[in-house]
Amino acid sequence: MLVRLDSTQLTVTEAPLAFVERHADAIAAHWNRRVAAQPRLWNGPQFLFTDVRVHGGVLHGTAHRTDYAAFLFWRDHRRDGSAVHITGASLGVTTDGAIIAARMADHTANAGQIYFPAGSLDPGDVAGGRIDITGNIRRELAEETGLEPPLADFDPAMVAASIDHAWYVARRCRLALSFAECEARVRAHQAATGDDELAELIAIRSRDDTDRLRPYARALALWHFDDVERGEGR
């Protein structure tokens, strides 16, 4: 399902999440197995959500503090609906018409998968008791790629894909660079920071390129190309 959003209202609660309490031992055991296979995984803080709904163009939800181990268990042991995951994503469109996607490095939890720069919401995204999803989207784009377009270059509205109790909230950004220039910027960023989460940058230039994307990313890309055909996207 795809839906256009005007805004989000994701409110942080200190209440425990029943899903995590119910599966605490299994979460710990699963995390130990995952780290044994991929030692560079990091159990950072993040959120899972309850009471997620869309009303009047606004995505509502209650954010419960948890960690990456709980998320991975939820993701890998699919998803009973008592918890929901929300991710911010950027749709960066280059001056030569490509959407910026990336293949994830082998040491990450999404090794080999191709999607748009994105990241789970975490406590650094909270302002005034609510999650700033646009701040998350811009931060993740900058951290992963070194690209830091101003807020004015992002579309005012958002689009969200909902698949299997997960929401992927995206804002499209009109980058002032070609795809080749973005690649050079990313390589320089990785050399300067040592960040190697992205194995390679990939240009999604048409519908024919979307089959290799994760399903939610493919849905967002097809939405963009529909907009292009209507003259609304670049």
Rank of each mutant, 00 (worst) to 15 (best):
M1L: 09
R4S: 08
L5T: 00
S7Y: 02
T8Y: 05
T11Y: 01
A15D: 14
P16K: 14
L17E: 01
L17A: 04
E21W: 05
R22I: 11
R22H: 15
R22C: 12
R22L: 07
D25F: 06
A26N: 10
A26T: 14
A26Q: 15
A29I: 14
A29E: 12
H30I: 11
H30Y: 15
R33C: 08
R33Q: 00
V35Q: 11
V35K: 14
A36K: 12
A37L: 11
W42S: 14
P45S: 13
Q46D: 10
F49S: 04
D51N: 14
D51Q: 13
V52D: 06
R53S: 15
H60C: 00
H60M: 04
T62Q: 07
D67Y: 05
D67K: 05
A70L: 08
L72T: 10
F73L: 05
R75N: 06
D76L: 13
D76P: 05
R79W: 03
G81I: 06
S82L: 06
V84T: 15
V84M: 11
H85M: 11
T87G: 07
A89L: 11
V93I: 08
T94L: 02
T95C: 07
T95G: 04
G97L: 09
A98W: 13
A98M: 02
I100M: 04
A101I: 04
A102K: 09
R103N: 06
R103A: 09
M104R: 14
D106S: 15
D106F: 08
N110A: 11
A111Y: 09
G112S: 04
P117S: 09
P117D: 07
A118E: 08
D122K: 09
P123E: 12
G128C: 08
R130F: 04
D132Y: 02
T134S: 15
E140W: 07
A142H: 07
E143T: 09
T145H: 09
G146I: 01
E148T: 05
E148R: 05
P149A: 07
P149V: 03
P149Q: 03
L151A: 15
L151Y: 15
D153V: 01
D153P: 03
F154A: 15
F154E: 06
D155V: 00
A160S: 12
H165G: 04
A166I: 00
W167Q: 04
Y168H: 15
V169S: 01
R171D: 06
R171H: 11
C173G: 12
R174W: 09
L175P: 06
A176C: 01
F179C: 02
E183S: 03
V186M: 12
R187E: 13
A188K: 14
H189Y: 02
Q190V: 04
T193D: 04
A199E: 13
E200T: 14
I202S: 09
I204E: 03
R205V: 03
R205N: 12
D208S: 12
T210N: 10
R212N: 05
L213E: 13
R214C: 02
P215D: 08
A217Q: 12
R218T: 04
L222S: 02
H224S: 01
F225A: 00
D226K: 11
V228I: 13
V228D: 07
R230T: 05
R234S: 07
